[in-house]
Write a protein that binds this DNA or RNA. Structure first.
Length: 500
RNA sequence: GCGGGAGUAGCUCAGGGGUUAGAGCGCCUCCUUGCCAAGGAGGAGGUCGCGGGUUCGAUUCCCGUCUCCCGCUCCA
Protein backbone atom coordinates (compact mmCIF):
# COMPACT_ATOMS: atom_id res chain seq x y z
CA UNK A 1 0.00 0.00 0.00
CA UNK A 2 1.66 3.19 -1.15
CA UNK A 3 2.90 5.53 1.51
CA UNK A 4 1.31 3.76 4.43
CA UNK A 5 3.14 4.42 7.65
CA UNK A 6 4.91 1.53 9.26
CA UNK A 7 3.31 0.89 12.60
CA UNK A 8 5.43 -0.89 15.14
CA UNK A 9 3.53 -2.96 17.63
CA UNK A 10 4.46 -5.74 20.03
CA UNK A 11 8.03 -5.81 18.82
CA UNK A 12 7.04 -6.15 15.19
CA UNK A 13 5.63 -4.35 12.20
CA UNK A 14 1.84 -4.23 12.22
CA UNK A 15 -0.11 -5.44 9.22
CA UNK A 16 -1.62 -3.09 6.68
CA UNK A 17 -5.20 -3.98 5.80
CA UNK A 18 -3.95 -5.45 2.55
CA UNK A 19 -1.34 -7.62 4.23
CA UNK A 20 -3.96 -8.69 6.72
CA UNK A 21 -6.41 -9.76 4.03
CA UNK A 22 -3.63 -11.66 2.22
CA UNK A 23 -2.64 -13.40 5.44
CA UNK A 24 -6.24 -14.38 6.08
CA UNK A 25 -6.57 -16.05 2.68
CA UNK A 26 -3.15 -17.65 2.72
CA UNK A 27 -3.48 -19.29 6.11
CA UNK A 28 -7.16 -20.12 5.98
CA UNK A 29 -8.69 -17.53 8.28
CA UNK A 30 -11.14 -15.84 5.91
CA UNK A 31 -12.10 -16.34 2.26
CA UNK A 32 -14.27 -14.10 0.08
CA UNK A 33 -17.67 -15.70 -0.44
CA UNK A 34 -18.44 -17.58 -3.67
CA UNK A 35 -15.08 -16.68 -5.10
CA UNK A 36 -15.20 -19.13 -8.01
CA UNK A 37 -18.21 -17.18 -9.29
CA UNK A 38 -16.42 -13.87 -9.04
CA UNK A 39 -17.18 -13.21 -5.41
CA UNK A 40 -20.19 -11.82 -3.59
CA UNK A 41 -19.67 -8.43 -2.02
CA UNK A 42 -20.08 -8.00 1.68
CA UNK A 43 -20.03 -11.69 2.53
CA UNK A 44 -17.09 -13.72 3.80
CA UNK A 45 -16.48 -17.31 4.80
CA UNK A 46 -14.33 -18.36 7.74
CA UNK A 47 -11.74 -21.03 6.96
CA UNK A 48 -10.01 -23.76 8.98
CA UNK A 49 -8.19 -21.20 11.16
CA UNK A 50 -10.85 -18.49 11.12
CA UNK A 51 -13.74 -20.71 12.15
CA UNK A 52 -12.18 -21.83 15.46
CA UNK A 53 -10.84 -18.34 16.21
CA UNK A 54 -14.29 -16.88 15.67
CA UNK A 55 -15.87 -19.57 17.82
CA UNK A 56 -13.37 -18.81 20.56
CA UNK A 57 -14.17 -15.10 20.44
CA UNK A 58 -17.82 -15.97 21.00
CA UNK A 59 -16.88 -18.48 23.68
CA UNK A 60 -14.88 -15.83 25.52
CA UNK A 61 -17.77 -13.37 25.33
CA UNK A 62 -20.28 -15.96 26.52
CA UNK A 63 -18.11 -16.93 29.47
CA UNK A 64 -17.43 -13.32 30.38
CA UNK A 65 -21.13 -12.47 30.27
CA UNK A 66 -23.12 -15.57 31.20
CA UNK A 67 -20.65 -17.68 33.16
CA UNK A 68 -19.29 -14.77 35.16
CA UNK A 69 -22.62 -13.23 36.15
CA UNK A 70 -25.23 -15.06 38.19
CA UNK A 71 -27.88 -12.66 36.92
CA UNK A 72 -27.15 -12.97 33.20
CA UNK A 73 -28.60 -15.86 31.22
CA UNK A 74 -28.31 -16.98 27.64
CA UNK A 75 -30.80 -17.12 24.81
CA UNK A 76 -30.78 -18.28 21.21
CA UNK A 77 -33.73 -16.75 19.42
CA UNK A 78 -34.66 -17.33 15.79
CA UNK A 79 -33.56 -15.22 12.87
CA UNK A 80 -37.09 -15.10 11.47
CA UNK A 81 -39.71 -13.31 13.51
CA UNK A 82 -43.26 -12.09 13.20
CA UNK A 83 -43.28 -9.06 10.85
CA UNK A 84 -45.02 -6.99 13.54
CA UNK A 85 -41.84 -7.16 15.58
CA UNK A 86 -40.13 -4.88 13.11
CA UNK A 87 -43.02 -2.48 13.00
CA UNK A 88 -42.89 -2.20 16.77
CA UNK A 89 -39.12 -1.82 16.84
CA UNK A 90 -39.32 1.01 14.34
CA UNK A 91 -37.25 -0.79 11.74
CA UNK A 92 -40.01 -0.95 9.16
CA UNK A 93 -40.41 2.81 9.44
CA UNK A 94 -36.79 3.85 9.92
CA UNK A 95 -34.58 1.17 8.48
CA UNK A 96 -34.46 2.43 4.95
CA UNK A 97 -33.26 5.52 3.17
CA UNK A 98 -34.77 7.66 0.45
CA UNK A 99 -32.39 8.39 -2.37
CA UNK A 100 -32.60 10.77 -5.27
CA UNK A 101 -30.37 11.17 -8.28
CA UNK A 102 -29.50 14.39 -10.02
CA UNK A 103 -29.58 13.39 -13.69
CA UNK A 104 -27.46 16.37 -14.59
CA UNK A 105 -24.33 15.27 -12.75
CA UNK A 106 -25.37 11.66 -12.05
CA UNK A 107 -24.84 12.12 -8.33
CA UNK A 108 -26.94 10.26 -5.86
CA UNK A 109 -27.94 11.74 -2.52
CA UNK A 110 -29.92 10.87 0.51
CA UNK A 111 -32.98 13.11 0.28
CA UNK A 112 -32.86 14.37 3.85
CA UNK A 113 -29.30 15.54 3.38
CA UNK A 114 -30.08 17.43 0.20
CA UNK A 115 -33.06 19.16 1.72
CA UNK A 116 -31.28 19.95 4.96
CA UNK A 117 -28.36 21.47 3.08
CA UNK A 118 -30.67 23.60 1.00
CA UNK A 119 -32.74 24.78 3.95
CA UNK A 120 -29.57 25.71 5.82
CA UNK A 121 -28.48 27.70 2.85
CA UNK A 122 -31.80 29.52 2.59
CA UNK A 123 -31.55 30.38 6.26
CA UNK A 124 -28.00 31.61 5.86
CA UNK A 125 -29.28 33.93 3.17
CA UNK A 126 -31.95 35.22 5.50
CA UNK A 127 -34.82 33.60 3.62
CA UNK A 128 -36.31 32.15 6.78
CA UNK A 129 -39.92 32.01 5.57
CA UNK A 130 -39.01 30.16 2.43
CA UNK A 131 -36.86 27.73 4.40
CA UNK A 132 -39.74 26.94 6.69
CA UNK A 133 -42.17 26.39 3.81
CA UNK A 134 -39.74 24.03 2.08
CA UNK A 135 -39.11 22.06 5.24
CA UNK A 136 -42.80 21.69 5.98
CA UNK A 137 -43.53 20.50 2.47
CA UNK A 138 -40.66 18.04 2.73
CA UNK A 139 -41.89 16.66 6.02
CA UNK A 140 -45.36 16.24 4.61
CA UNK A 141 -44.03 14.33 1.62
CA UNK A 142 -41.94 12.22 3.97
CA UNK A 143 -44.96 11.45 6.14
CA UNK A 144 -46.85 10.15 3.12
CA UNK A 145 -44.23 7.41 2.87
CA UNK A 146 -44.66 7.45 -0.91
CA UNK A 147 -41.89 7.97 -3.40
CA UNK A 148 -44.26 9.77 -5.80
CA UNK A 149 -44.91 12.48 -3.22
CA UNK A 150 -41.24 12.97 -2.57
CA UNK A 151 -40.43 13.05 -6.27
CA UNK A 152 -43.15 15.66 -6.79
CA UNK A 153 -41.75 17.72 -3.92
CA UNK A 154 -38.25 17.72 -5.38
CA UNK A 155 -39.50 18.89 -8.75
CA UNK A 156 -42.14 21.38 -7.59
CA UNK A 157 -39.80 23.12 -5.15
CA UNK A 158 -36.82 23.00 -7.52
CA UNK A 159 -34.59 21.71 -4.74
CA UNK A 160 -30.98 22.78 -5.10
CA UNK A 161 -28.17 20.29 -5.55
CA UNK A 162 -25.79 20.90 -2.60
CA UNK A 163 -22.75 20.61 -4.82
CA UNK A 164 -23.95 22.68 -7.71
CA UNK A 165 -25.84 25.37 -5.83
CA UNK A 166 -28.52 25.15 -8.50
CA UNK A 167 -31.78 23.21 -8.86
CA UNK A 168 -31.08 19.64 -9.86
CA UNK A 169 -32.62 17.64 -12.66
CA UNK A 170 -34.15 15.22 -10.19
CA UNK A 171 -34.99 11.66 -11.11
CA UNK A 172 -37.55 9.61 -9.22
CA UNK A 173 -36.97 9.33 -5.48
CA UNK A 174 -36.22 5.73 -4.64
CA UNK A 175 -36.38 3.81 -1.44
CA UNK A 176 -33.50 1.58 -0.43
CA UNK A 177 -34.56 -0.95 2.15
CA UNK A 178 -31.80 -1.97 4.50
CA UNK A 179 -33.64 -5.09 5.67
CA UNK A 180 -33.51 -8.36 3.77
CA UNK A 181 -36.92 -9.53 2.71
CA UNK A 182 -37.98 -13.08 2.01
CA UNK A 183 -41.23 -15.01 1.99
CA UNK A 184 -42.80 -17.45 4.37
CA UNK A 185 -45.53 -19.74 3.07
CA UNK A 186 -45.08 -22.38 0.42
CA UNK A 187 -47.88 -21.40 -1.94
CA UNK A 188 -48.47 -18.03 -3.54
CA UNK A 189 -51.70 -17.53 -1.56
CA UNK A 190 -49.98 -18.20 1.75
CA UNK A 191 -47.06 -15.98 1.02
CA UNK A 192 -46.16 -13.50 3.66
CA UNK A 193 -43.28 -11.08 3.64
CA UNK A 194 -40.80 -11.73 6.42
CA UNK A 195 -37.49 -10.13 7.25
CA UNK A 196 -34.10 -11.49 8.13
CA UNK A 197 -33.41 -9.78 11.44
CA UNK A 198 -31.25 -6.64 11.15
CA UNK A 199 -30.29 -6.97 14.82
CA UNK A 200 -30.58 -9.71 17.40
CA UNK A 201 -31.92 -7.49 20.18
CA UNK A 202 -35.62 -7.85 19.35
CA UNK A 203 -35.48 -11.60 19.92
CA UNK A 204 -34.46 -10.82 23.48
CA UNK A 205 -37.12 -8.17 24.08
CA UNK A 206 -40.05 -10.27 22.93
CA UNK A 207 -38.86 -13.15 25.11
CA UNK A 208 -37.84 -11.18 28.16
CA UNK A 209 -40.75 -12.14 30.38
CA UNK A 210 -40.46 -15.82 29.47
CA UNK A 211 -36.81 -15.69 30.36
CA UNK A 212 -37.32 -13.70 33.53
CA UNK A 213 -40.04 -16.03 34.83
CA UNK A 214 -38.46 -19.32 33.81
CA UNK A 215 -35.06 -18.39 35.20
CA UNK A 216 -36.69 -16.65 38.20
CA UNK A 217 -34.72 -13.47 37.68
CA UNK A 218 -35.12 -10.14 39.40
CA UNK A 219 -34.15 -6.76 38.10
CA UNK A 220 -31.35 -6.05 37.46
CA UNK A 221 -30.71 -8.96 35.15
CA UNK A 222 -29.33 -9.58 31.70
CA UNK A 223 -30.04 -11.75 28.67
CA UNK A 224 -27.15 -12.61 26.38
CA UNK A 225 -27.33 -13.82 22.83
CA UNK A 226 -24.94 -14.47 19.96
CA UNK A 227 -26.32 -14.70 16.47
CA UNK A 228 -26.43 -13.63 12.88
CA UNK A 229 -28.02 -10.46 11.60
CA UNK A 230 -28.44 -9.17 8.07
CA UNK A 231 -28.31 -5.74 6.52
CA UNK A 232 -28.59 -4.66 2.93
CA UNK A 233 -25.92 -2.00 3.18
CA UNK A 234 -25.22 0.26 0.24
CA UNK A 235 -21.52 -0.26 0.09
CA UNK A 236 -19.13 -2.76 1.52
CA UNK A 237 -15.65 -1.72 2.35
CA UNK A 238 -12.80 -2.58 4.58
CA UNK A 239 -13.06 -6.32 4.66
CA UNK A 240 -15.02 -7.57 7.65
CA UNK A 241 -16.07 -4.11 8.85
CA UNK A 242 -19.35 -3.91 6.99
CA UNK A 243 -21.03 -7.05 5.83
CA UNK A 244 -24.42 -8.09 4.55
CA UNK A 245 -24.40 -11.07 6.87
CA UNK A 246 -22.67 -10.61 10.19
CA UNK A 247 -22.76 -11.84 13.73
CA UNK A 248 -23.53 -9.96 16.90
CA UNK A 249 -22.87 -10.62 20.56
CA UNK A 250 -25.60 -8.78 22.41
CA UNK A 251 -26.47 -8.49 26.04
CA UNK A 252 -29.58 -6.65 27.12
CA UNK A 253 -29.52 -5.61 30.76
CA UNK A 254 -32.89 -4.90 32.38
CA UNK A 255 -32.78 -2.36 35.18
CA UNK A 256 -35.00 -0.18 37.31
CA UNK A 257 -35.51 3.15 35.47
CA UNK A 258 -33.80 5.26 38.13
CA UNK A 259 -30.68 3.09 38.02
CA UNK A 260 -30.27 3.02 34.27
CA UNK A 261 -27.57 5.68 33.92
CA UNK A 262 -25.47 4.15 36.64
CA UNK A 263 -25.64 0.74 34.91
CA UNK A 264 -24.87 2.32 31.57
CA UNK A 265 -21.59 3.68 32.92
CA UNK A 266 -20.80 0.44 34.67
CA UNK A 267 -21.25 -1.57 31.49
CA UNK A 268 -18.97 0.72 29.52
CA UNK A 269 -16.20 -0.07 32.00
CA UNK A 270 -16.87 -3.77 32.02
CA UNK A 271 -17.00 -4.07 28.29
CA UNK A 272 -13.78 -2.11 27.87
CA UNK A 273 -12.12 -4.45 30.34
CA UNK A 274 -13.17 -7.40 28.19
CA UNK A 275 -10.84 -6.14 25.45
CA UNK A 276 -8.05 -5.10 27.79
CA UNK A 277 -8.03 -8.53 29.41
CA UNK A 278 -7.10 -10.04 26.06
CA UNK A 279 -4.04 -7.81 25.94
CA UNK A 280 -5.25 -5.05 23.65
CA UNK A 281 -3.16 -1.92 24.02
CA UNK A 282 -5.19 0.76 25.81
CA UNK A 283 -3.96 3.39 23.35
CA UNK A 284 -5.75 1.65 20.49
CA UNK A 285 -9.12 1.53 22.24
CA UNK A 286 -11.38 4.45 22.98
CA UNK A 287 -14.91 5.20 24.05
CA UNK A 288 -16.73 7.63 21.78
CA UNK A 289 -20.10 9.18 22.59
CA UNK A 290 -22.55 9.16 19.68
CA UNK A 291 -23.12 12.39 17.84
CA UNK A 292 -26.51 11.39 16.51
CA UNK A 293 -28.68 9.29 18.76
CA UNK A 294 -30.81 6.56 17.22
CA UNK A 295 -34.53 6.81 17.72
CA UNK A 296 -34.50 4.38 20.63
CA UNK A 297 -31.49 5.63 22.52
CA UNK A 298 -31.18 8.06 25.37
CA UNK A 299 -27.42 7.69 25.63
CA UNK A 300 -24.99 5.84 23.42
CA UNK A 301 -21.26 5.26 23.13
CA UNK A 302 -19.10 3.23 20.79
CA UNK A 303 -16.06 1.28 21.82
CA UNK A 304 -13.68 1.94 18.96
CA UNK A 305 -10.49 0.19 17.97
CA UNK A 306 -7.71 1.71 15.95
CA UNK A 307 -7.66 -0.53 12.87
CA UNK A 308 -5.02 -0.19 10.14
CA UNK A 309 -7.60 1.96 8.31
CA UNK A 310 -8.42 4.14 11.29
CA UNK A 311 -10.73 4.27 14.29
CA UNK A 312 -13.79 2.07 13.81
CA UNK A 313 -16.60 0.87 16.03
CA UNK A 314 -16.34 -2.66 17.40
CA UNK A 315 -19.09 -2.39 19.98
CA UNK A 316 -21.99 -0.11 20.81
CA UNK A 317 -23.37 0.46 24.28
CA UNK A 318 -26.80 2.02 24.38
CA UNK A 319 -29.23 3.16 26.98
CA UNK A 320 -32.43 2.17 25.20
CA UNK A 321 -34.75 3.22 28.03
CA UNK A 322 -38.07 1.36 27.96
CA UNK A 323 -38.62 2.31 24.32
CA UNK A 324 -38.58 -1.23 22.92
CA UNK A 325 -40.68 -2.84 25.61
CA UNK A 326 -43.18 -0.02 25.49
CA UNK A 327 -43.50 -0.36 21.72
CA UNK A 328 -43.90 -4.12 21.91
CA UNK A 329 -46.50 -3.71 24.60
CA UNK A 330 -48.35 -1.27 22.38
CA UNK A 331 -48.16 -3.32 19.18
CA UNK A 332 -48.81 -6.72 20.74
CA UNK A 333 -51.38 -5.40 23.23
CA UNK A 334 -49.84 -7.74 25.80
CA UNK A 335 -48.80 -6.49 29.17
CA UNK A 336 -45.02 -6.54 29.35
CA UNK A 337 -44.46 -4.96 32.73
CA UNK A 338 -42.25 -6.52 35.33
CA UNK A 339 -43.42 -6.86 38.91
CA UNK A 340 -40.76 -5.66 41.30
CA UNK A 341 -41.19 -7.63 44.54
CA UNK A 342 -39.14 -5.16 46.57
CA UNK A 343 -40.84 -2.01 45.40
CA UNK A 344 -44.16 -3.81 45.11
CA UNK A 345 -44.88 -2.16 41.78
CA UNK A 346 -45.26 -2.96 38.10
CA UNK A 347 -43.08 -1.17 35.57
CA UNK A 348 -41.27 -1.54 32.27
CA UNK A 349 -37.58 -2.01 33.00
CA UNK A 350 -35.10 0.21 31.23
CA UNK A 351 -32.50 -1.49 29.09
CA UNK A 352 -28.76 -1.09 28.79
CA UNK A 353 -27.58 -2.81 25.65
CA UNK A 354 -24.05 -3.94 24.89
CA UNK A 355 -23.79 -4.98 21.27
CA UNK A 356 -20.47 -6.16 19.81
CA UNK A 357 -19.75 -7.29 16.26
CA UNK A 358 -18.11 -10.71 16.25
CA UNK A 359 -16.50 -10.10 12.88
CA UNK A 360 -15.18 -6.72 13.93
CA UNK A 361 -13.70 -8.12 17.12
CA UNK A 362 -12.15 -10.89 15.02
CA UNK A 363 -10.61 -8.29 12.73
CA UNK A 364 -9.44 -6.21 15.68
CA UNK A 365 -7.68 -9.24 17.15
CA UNK A 366 -5.87 -9.88 13.88
CA UNK A 367 -4.97 -6.20 13.55
CA UNK A 368 -3.68 -6.02 17.09
CA UNK A 369 -1.78 -9.27 17.37
CA UNK A 370 -0.49 -10.10 13.89
CA UNK A 371 3.03 -8.75 13.42
CA UNK A 372 6.12 -9.14 11.29
CA UNK A 373 8.98 -9.44 13.70
CA UNK A 374 12.71 -9.00 13.13
CA UNK A 375 14.60 -11.84 14.80
CA UNK A 376 18.02 -11.44 16.29
CA UNK A 377 20.91 -13.64 15.27
CA UNK A 378 20.52 -15.92 18.25
CA UNK A 379 17.11 -16.91 16.94
CA UNK A 380 18.29 -17.43 13.40
CA UNK A 381 17.92 -13.85 12.20
CA UNK A 382 15.53 -12.78 9.48
CA UNK A 383 11.89 -11.96 9.79
CA UNK A 384 9.01 -14.03 11.03
CA UNK A 385 5.27 -13.54 10.82
CA UNK A 386 3.79 -14.17 14.20
CA UNK A 387 0.19 -14.00 15.26
CA UNK A 388 0.44 -13.28 18.96
CA UNK A 389 -3.11 -14.45 19.40
CA UNK A 390 -4.29 -14.44 23.02
CA UNK A 391 -3.57 -18.07 23.86
CA UNK A 392 -7.12 -18.97 24.94
CA UNK A 393 -8.46 -17.98 21.55
CA UNK A 394 -5.82 -19.61 19.33
CA UNK A 395 -7.20 -21.83 16.54
CA UNK A 396 -4.61 -24.47 17.42
CA UNK A 397 -3.43 -24.61 21.01
CA UNK A 398 -0.57 -27.10 20.86
CA UNK A 399 1.55 -28.35 17.97
CA UNK A 400 3.38 -31.64 18.39
CA UNK A 401 6.50 -32.33 16.35
CA UNK A 402 9.10 -35.08 16.14
CA UNK A 403 12.46 -33.38 15.68
CA UNK A 404 13.23 -35.64 12.73
CA UNK A 405 11.21 -38.15 10.82
CA UNK A 406 13.01 -41.33 11.84
CA UNK A 407 14.55 -43.31 14.67
CA UNK A 408 11.19 -43.80 16.32
CA UNK A 409 10.62 -40.11 17.06
CA UNK A 410 7.39 -39.84 15.03
CA UNK A 411 5.89 -42.77 16.92
CA UNK A 412 6.53 -41.14 20.28
CA UNK A 413 5.25 -37.79 19.01
CA UNK A 414 2.07 -39.37 17.69
CA UNK A 415 1.42 -40.99 21.06
CA UNK A 416 1.81 -37.60 22.71
CA UNK A 417 -0.56 -36.08 20.17
CA UNK A 418 -3.14 -38.75 20.97
CA UNK A 419 -2.88 -38.04 24.68
CA UNK A 420 -2.94 -34.24 24.36
CA UNK A 421 -5.74 -34.10 21.82
CA UNK A 422 -8.16 -35.40 24.45
CA UNK A 423 -7.65 -32.07 26.21
CA UNK A 424 -6.51 -29.49 23.68
CA UNK A 425 -6.83 -28.57 20.04
CA UNK A 426 -3.62 -30.05 18.69
CA UNK A 427 -1.75 -30.29 15.43
CA UNK A 428 0.74 -32.96 14.46
CA UNK A 429 3.38 -32.33 11.81
CA UNK A 430 6.47 -34.22 10.82
CA UNK A 431 7.20 -32.85 7.36
CA UNK A 432 9.84 -30.17 6.73
CA UNK A 433 12.55 -28.92 9.01
CA UNK A 434 11.71 -28.20 12.61
CA UNK A 435 12.29 -24.46 12.07
CA UNK A 436 9.84 -24.32 9.23
CA UNK A 437 7.20 -26.08 11.27
CA UNK A 438 7.67 -23.62 14.14
CA UNK A 439 7.28 -20.69 11.76
CA UNK A 440 4.18 -22.10 10.15
CA UNK A 441 2.53 -22.32 13.53
CA UNK A 442 3.78 -18.84 14.48
CA UNK A 443 1.83 -17.52 11.52
CA UNK A 444 -1.45 -19.06 12.63
CA UNK A 445 -0.94 -18.21 16.29
CA UNK A 446 -0.30 -21.60 17.90
CA UNK A 447 1.00 -20.61 21.34
CA UNK A 448 2.79 -23.83 22.28
CA UNK A 449 4.85 -26.45 20.48
CA UNK A 450 5.96 -29.77 21.93
CA UNK A 451 9.02 -31.31 20.31
CA UNK A 452 10.14 -34.89 20.67
CA UNK A 453 13.91 -35.22 20.29
CA UNK A 454 16.62 -37.83 20.96
CA UNK A 455 16.72 -37.01 24.64
CA UNK A 456 13.06 -38.00 24.79
CA UNK A 457 14.07 -41.58 24.00
CA UNK A 458 16.39 -41.57 26.98
CA UNK A 459 14.49 -39.75 29.72
CA UNK A 460 10.86 -39.31 28.63
CA UNK A 461 11.08 -35.52 28.46
CA UNK A 462 10.15 -33.16 25.63
CA UNK A 463 10.63 -29.48 24.96
CA UNK A 464 7.77 -27.02 25.29
CA UNK A 465 8.29 -23.95 23.11
CA UNK A 466 6.64 -20.60 23.70
CA UNK A 467 5.54 -18.80 20.54
CA UNK A 468 6.24 -15.29 21.75
CA UNK A 469 9.52 -15.68 23.62
CA UNK A 470 10.86 -18.59 21.51
CA UNK A 471 12.04 -20.06 24.78
CA UNK A 472 11.88 -23.78 25.41
CA UNK A 473 11.49 -25.57 28.70
CA UNK A 474 12.31 -29.21 29.22
CA UNK A 475 9.36 -31.06 30.66
CA UNK A 476 8.55 -34.68 31.55
CA UNK A 477 5.87 -36.17 29.33
CA UNK A 478 3.59 -37.08 32.26
CA UNK A 479 3.61 -33.42 33.38
CA UNK A 480 2.68 -32.03 29.97
CA UNK A 481 -1.08 -32.10 30.33
CA UNK A 482 -1.07 -30.46 33.74
CA UNK A 483 1.36 -27.78 32.58
CA UNK A 484 -0.60 -26.99 29.44
CA UNK A 485 -3.90 -26.95 31.31
CA UNK A 486 -2.40 -24.41 33.64
CA UNK A 487 -1.25 -22.27 30.74
CA UNK A 488 -4.47 -22.50 28.77
CA UNK A 489 -6.95 -22.27 31.63
CA UNK A 490 -9.63 -19.63 31.07
CA UNK A 491 -9.77 -18.65 34.71
CA UNK A 492 -6.83 -16.28 34.39
CA UNK A 493 -8.46 -14.45 31.51
CA UNK A 494 -11.85 -14.33 33.20
CA UNK A 495 -10.34 -13.05 36.43
CA UNK A 496 -8.92 -10.10 34.52
CA UNK A 497 -12.36 -9.32 33.12
CA UNK A 498 -13.99 -9.39 36.52
CA UNK A 499 -11.38 -7.46 38.47
CA UNK A 500 -12.02 -3.78 38.77
C1' G B 1 -23.15 5.94 -5.55
C1' C B 2 -18.84 9.37 -7.44
C1' G B 3 -13.45 9.71 -8.63
C1' G B 4 -8.81 6.90 -8.99
C1' G B 5 -6.14 2.09 -9.15
C1' A B 6 -6.17 -3.23 -9.79
C1' G B 7 -7.78 -8.52 -11.17
C1' U B 8 -2.14 -13.49 -14.67
C1' A B 9 -0.23 -20.43 -10.50
C1' G B 10 -2.22 -21.63 -3.54
C1' C B 11 0.41 -16.51 -2.09
C1' U B 12 3.31 -12.01 -3.80
C1' C B 13 3.98 -10.34 -8.51
C1' A B 14 6.62 -9.86 -13.68
C1' G B 15 5.29 -9.97 -18.79
C1' G B 16 3.17 -8.77 -23.36
C1' G B 17 -1.30 -8.42 -30.62
C1' G B 18 1.82 -14.07 -32.96
C1' U B 19 5.07 -21.21 -31.19
C1' U B 20 4.36 -25.13 -25.29
C1' A B 21 2.66 -17.65 -20.40
C1' G B 22 7.16 -16.77 -16.37
C1' A B 23 9.81 -15.83 -11.34
C1' G B 24 10.16 -16.14 -6.01
C1' C B 25 7.76 -18.39 -2.13
C1' G B 26 4.28 -22.34 -1.16
C1' C B 27 2.51 -27.52 -2.46
C1' C B 28 3.60 -33.12 -3.75
C1' U B 29 7.51 -37.42 -4.16
C1' C B 30 12.44 -39.13 -3.12
C1' C B 31 17.33 -38.17 -1.00
C1' U B 32 19.66 -35.33 2.79
C1' U B 33 18.79 -32.93 7.49
C1' G B 34 20.27 -33.42 15.72
C1' C B 35 15.89 -27.04 17.41
C1' C B 36 13.83 -21.82 14.68
C1' A B 37 11.34 -20.53 6.96
C1' A B 38 18.81 -25.40 5.21
C1' G B 39 20.44 -28.28 0.58
C1' G B 40 19.85 -31.67 -3.89
C1' A B 41 16.77 -34.24 -7.70
C1' G B 42 12.10 -34.70 -9.77
C1' G B 43 6.81 -33.25 -10.16
C1' A B 44 1.79 -31.15 -10.00
C1' G B 45 -0.69 -26.65 -10.74
C1' G B 46 -3.01 -21.28 -15.26
C1' U B 47 -9.10 -21.69 -20.93
C1' C B 48 -4.36 -14.58 -17.82
C1' G B 49 -11.93 -12.54 -13.23
C1' C B 50 -16.44 -13.17 -16.49
C1' G B 51 -19.25 -11.80 -21.16
C1' G B 52 -19.11 -9.51 -25.80
C1' G B 53 -16.52 -6.81 -29.80
C1' U B 54 -12.25 -5.54 -33.19
C1' U B 55 -8.58 -8.83 -35.68
C1' C B 56 -6.11 -13.94 -39.91
C1' G B 57 -4.91 -14.31 -34.59
C1' A B 58 -6.71 -11.38 -28.04
C1' U B 59 -4.19 -13.00 -21.82
C1' U B 60 -2.50 -8.25 -24.35
C1' C B 61 -6.65 -3.37 -27.85
C1' C B 62 -12.10 -1.64 -27.14
C1' C B 63 -16.98 -2.00 -24.56
C1' G B 64 -19.83 -4.08 -20.72
C1' U B 65 -20.01 -6.66 -16.12
C1' C B 66 -18.39 -8.69 -11.38
C1' U B 67 -14.90 -8.40 -7.45
C1' C B 68 -11.02 -6.06 -4.56
C1' C B 69 -8.08 -1.70 -2.90
C1' C B 70 -7.56 3.93 -2.00
C1' G B 71 -10.22 8.70 -1.39
C1' C B 72 -15.10 10.86 -0.92
C1' U B 73 -19.85 9.37 0.62
C1' C B 74 -22.68 6.18 3.79
C1' C B 75 -23.14 3.58 8.50
C1' A B 76 -29.04 1.79 14.30
Amino acid sequence: MGGEEVVVRRGGRAASLQALVAHCTEYGFVFPSSEIYGGFAGVYDYGPMGAPLKRNVKEYWWRAMVQLHANIVGLDSAILMHPKVWEASGHTAHFFDWFVENRKNRKRYRVDQVVEAWVDRLRAEGREGEARRVWEAFEEALRSGRSEELTAFFRAYRVEDPEEGAPGDWGAVRRLNLMFVTWAGATDEDRQEVYLRPETAQGIYVNYLHVQRSARLRVPFGIAQVGKAFRNELIFRQFLMRMREFEQMEMQFFVAPEESEEWFDRWIDRRLRWYLALGFDRSRLRVQPHKHLAHYAQKAVDIEYRFPMGWKEVEGIHLRTDYDLRRHQEFSRKKLTYFDPFKQEHYLPHIVETSAGVDRVFLAILSEFLVWEQLDEGSGGGERVVFRCPRWLAPVQVAVFPLVRRDGLPEVARRIFDALSLHFVCAYEEKDSIGRRYRRHDAIGTPYAVTVDYQTLEDETVTLRDRDTLRQERIAIPDLIVRLKELLDWSELLRRVRES
